[in-house]
């Protein structure tokens, strides 16, 4: 399998001239994914930032075939596209769905579940920026504890969102999927290696990409990559894979980087008190204790 890096990555762009905010982590995830999958790729995008920024009539930022799907049906439309390509005898293609965290963990969950159940030959990418950003920062199932969003405001009584992130990766893995992985735009080489694996997987594959959003998170546009890396280093996000029925933890830091530095760099967490940060740390430690015990480490 090719080991991708900046040097051997194609100079060709397949997602270009889009209108995403400056410093958008999600658009970097889509750009790198498209570069690995190549020009014979068919993309399905539900309502969400990535379709809103690339299909602005008469602009079209994808240089390949791409379609906007109903919000709930990324998995179903991608399945249909793969079936259509097969019926027409069009070979050497990739079918990919790019959905956000809300479009994956909440609204599109059953269509994704159906696609994995049928083991259709598609790649499903979840671009996780931890809220419904396109519609103005509403809480989703993947919004972490203590996040200030417009539907989970922080105040005297509540620290913002009071639920933890849904275990989306484990939910997908529980289907017995062919290949699933988590990645972060802060670790681009790892991200590209996982997309390459997904590309070479026969059957459904799922890659969950952690991608900061300067607009929704309230941080400078230049620190997007740094924050994505800090999230992994501080243990609030993890890099893992699910292959042949086994969980593999790719990165197991001996010591976590400072959670406070990561949280306080973003205005969505600025209001957090010490006891709220303690809740976040305890949840992180419990999650890591379980992962370290049950998952293989490589």
């Amino acid at each position: 399998m090719i080991k991708h890096n900046a040097r051997n990555l194609t100079n060709e762009e397949f997602f270009y001239g889009h209108k995403a905010c400056g410093g958008c982590g999600e658009s970097l995830a889509v750009r790198l994914t498209m570069k690995i999958l190549g020009e014979r790729t068919f993309a399905a995008l539900p309502a969400g930032c990535m379709s809103a920024v690339s299909f602005i009539y008469p602009n079209m930022a994808f240089t390949t075939n791409a379609i906007i799907t109903p919000f709930a049906s990324t998995g179903a439309v991608a399945s249909g596209m793969a079936a259509g390509l097969k019926a027409l005898g069009i070979e050497n293609t990739q079918t990919v769905g790019f959905a956000g965290d809300g479009g994956t963990a909440d609204i599109g969950l059953q269509a994704l579940s159906g696609a994995i159940d049928r083991n259709d030959d598609i790649i499903y990418i979840c671009n996780d920026n931890e809220a419904y950003m396109n519609t103005g920062i509403q809480k989703s199932g993947l919004t972490p504890y203590g996040t200030k969003t417009t539907t989970s405001p922080a105040g005297k009584n509540l620290p913002g969102s009071i639920t933890m992130k849904k275990n989306m990766f484990e939910i997908v893995a529980a289907h017995g999927i062919q290949y699933a992985a988590t990645a972060s735009v802060g670790y681009p080489e790892d991200l590209m290696a996982k997309i390459e694996k997904a590309k070479n997987t026969k059957g459904t594959s799922y890659v969950h990409i952690f991608a900061p959003c300067p607009t929704g998170w309230g941080h400078g546009s230049e620190v997007t990559i740094e924050l994505a890396k800090q999230a992994v280093d501080s243990g609030l996000w993890y890099l893992a894979e699910f292959e042949n029925g086994e969980f593999i933890l790719n990165k197991n830091p001996k010591e976590f980087a400072s959670v406070e530095n990561y949280l306080m760099a973003q205005s969505r967490f600025k209001h957090l008190k010490e006891e709220d940060i303690e809740v976040i740390k305890n949840h992180r430690d419990a999650k890591w204790a379980k992962m370290r015990k049950d998952w293989q480490q490589k």
Partner: peptide
């Protein structure tokens, strides 16, 4: 020419050809 900027640009505007 480490190409880190080329790799990480969300808009892909840096050409390395």
């Amino acid at each position: 020419m480490c190409l880190r900027c080329f790799l990480l640009c969300p808009d892909g505007v840096i050409d390395k050809s």
